[in-house]
Write a protein that binds this DNA or RNA. Structure first.
Lengths: 226, 226
DNA sequence: GTAAGGCATATTGTTGACAATCCACGAGTT
DNA sequence: AACTCGTGGATTGTCAACAATATGCCTTAC
């Protein structure tokens, strides 16, 4: 392991990050029961910091822990994934509205620039949905922080996105969707640029609603089994 | 049998509960820097479980922890308290809508019954705002769980309510508000009973909006200093 | 007199060993 | 043959000692 680690980062934080990414990337399959000692040897940690990290992960709902029985990765059902999108709809709607009221002109310009780069990425990497997903994540990330609502950003970035991303990695976005999503992103930013919070909220809600319907359709088609 | 306590409760859970209530009740003042050893002696714990609990509290945003520098209770500014209510508005709006779609008839009847008991409490205990606050908490708690949206309930009950309650304890609700709030509660339940999700969402949002404006007014009057 | 730097102390972060608890397997009984 | 009960093993929960780091005070130089 290359020790690039910052000294201000404690071992427990390190463990937390490792585990979180491992869960999100799918290296630790949902429902899988994992022993503490195995995790220790896998990430070169001792049980103290590991347990601390496990506690945090549990508190965030990525793990379930039964006393003396062990830890297992949470397995989210299809219904629960849909519910997640319903929550995103209202929370990101609020984020968009507040972002329209509070983002600086600079931030908005920057956001527009990133949209251009996302478009370029989609154009050249035809079908490489991964980058599109990263771009999408980047977009929503900026809106969340742009809202200047600390707790809102914390809940979105710390709780919801990680759970959603758990499925992003196994779930390729459908063919025409990236282009459409980009268009929707543009409209939202436009509304923000015009400082029209109400419109930004409406458009964001519709955007996430569309994404949810897209996933629902896939599940019904049986393309996506969770 | 002296062991009324469930054995499935681990020391870390115990520590977590103790600390959480201590923070919420104000026994640990916001901004106060607290040493680990002091907490250990105070709650009869060892540092292992304590640290695990601290990690969870930090992850939930009730504590801030700087490496090697110690732990201190988070201090929420007036603005941030307002922001909390903005989040509640959209999230509980969603909860109300989903509750209208999914609560059982039994649950709704039960909810109505609790509203009656709340009314009785307000009538007899004139000015005892504490019970009203508890009743209010109870009401919102039921709506959240009634939504059948696991993650939504988790975020509301696990994250937001505890932060809001931090201030409930020092902040007596204003004179006429309990009665008004109760009336709003009734309208919401009525909408739920009629399975009108859209209306329930609207009414709940307006209800929380009113509560927020009430607090904003108090802050501007200087009655409430945070 | 003030500011910068180094040292001591106290506090946090980490480690490894010990104790308590659950799960699985096997034996005995119906 | 199937079910229940008991025991062994493994895993988790807990503890106390060790190491690393930041804060505060004192000294010293300008």
């Amino acid at each position: 392991m290359a020790e690039v680690q910052l000294q201000t980062q404690t071992r427990a934080d390190e463990a937390f990050d490792c585990l979180q990414t491992a869960i999100v990337k799918g290296d630790l399959a949902p429902g899988e029961k994992i022993g503490e000692v195995e995790l220790c040897s896998r990430f070169n940690l001792t049980r103290g910091p590991l347990r601390e990290a496990l506690g945090r992960l549990e508190s965030r709902g990525l793990l379930v822990r039964r006393p003396h029985a062990g830890v297992k990765v949470v397995s989210v059902s299809a219904d629960e994934l849909i519910e997640l999108y319903r929550i995103r709809e209202v929370m990101e709607g609020l984020a968009a509205r507040q972002a329209a009221e509070r983002m600086t002109d600079e931030e908005i310009q920057d956001l527009l620039a990133t949209l251009d780069s996302h478009e370029a990425m989609i154009e050249e990497a035809q079908g490489q949905a991964y980058y599109q997903a990263e771009g999408d994540y980047d977009f929503h990330h900026r809106i969340a922080t742009g809202s200047r609502n600390t707790k809102l950003a914390q809940m979105l970035l710390g709780d919801l996105y990680y759970m959603v991303r758990m499925y992003r990695y196994r779930l390729s976005t459908s063919a025409g969707r990236p282009h459409m999503a980009l268009g929707e992103h543009r409209s939202i930013v436009e509304a923000i640029a015009q400082r029209d919070g109400e419109l930004a909220e409406f458009l964001m809600k519709r955007h996430i609603n569309a994404a949810r319907q897209n996933i629902e359709k896939k599940i019904q088609e049986g393309v996506l089994t969770i």
